[in-house]
Nucleic acid binder design. Sequence first.
DNA 1: GTTTATGCAAACTGTTTGCATTGCT
DNA 2: AGCAATGCAAACAGTTTGCATAAAC
Lengths: 156, 156
Amino acid sequence: MPCQRRCGHQWWHGKVRDRGFRVTAGREAIIEALSSTQDHLSAEDIYGKIHDRHPNVGPTTIYRTLDMLVQAGLVFKFDFGDGKARYELREGPKGAHHHHHLVCTSCKRIIDYTDFIDEELELLKRTEVGLSKRYGFRIEDHLIQFYGLCAECLRS
Amino acid sequence: MPCQRRCGHQWWHGKVRDRGFRVTAGREAIIEALSSTQDHLSAEDIYGKIHDRHPNVGPTTIYRTLDMLVQAGLVFKFDFGDGKARYELREGPKGAHHHHHLVCTSCKRIIDYTDFIDEELELLKRTEVGLSKRYGFRIEDHLIQFYGLCAECLRS
DNA sequence: GTTTATGCAAACTGTTTGCATTGCT
DNA sequence: AGCAATGCAAACAGTTTGCATAAAC
């Protein structure tokens, strides 16, 4: 199905088709929901976001689509310890956008940060080379999260 | 309850009592299970490990105890994406032992590593200072995980 | 036309909760 | 004695699965 809109919403079609998956209206809606926000959406969040325009897309499809997108490498699945999985687009029309997370252990707020990434990237690169030599491990991704108390919670 | 054994199994008693929690046989068994292995035990794993000697300790107690230990800062709770929480002692009789994880996305194997920790700690320290200035966030802990394919899975 | 995706309902898994009882301090 | 911890059974939440139908290729 060609893109219905004149904008570039089909950047991911190739990546999905290349892996033998099909492009459907439901999947379009789910990717759009993910790319329309900076938040870390749960499956339920996505359901809420798209249910108005796509009342036919149910939770099952969302879970199955998210699994597929994780498998295809388009989406990252996170766990922040609140019992539900959260999903984030790994790349957009403009390419990959990498960041790490600050998790407030009190109010569960999540702050994305991209500062200091340069130093971190340098260390990560070195670490990855070292680890692959030492353990024969091929590293494809990483997760860095800091836990603590956010400004709001420190105040009270 | 003073330690029944002549060894140093009571190193954590103070930390638990200081926070207003009590020392019980079940909790002793759970901490012993955690300290007797390098593995990342799930609640069910712990149940299996202690059920012979402590048939009276049920799953509920294990969950509640683990929550308490996480709260008391003695245990770290992880999620490796296999649907069950996993727990690891944060410190032992000899003090804290910090490490990070390599997660094989194919076979789900987890490899602990402590290499490069010094460099990492240095960077983390700098990052933490920067983040606390920028976001007013007080960082108390961090999680670093690398994802990829282990040597075994690369071979096949 | 063939194969993959979907929706529904029901099943499943890990975890949590209410309440009466036990046990630490 | 007083209050925290436990066990049991039942409840719960998020997620997964089987199967018939619909849609993409």
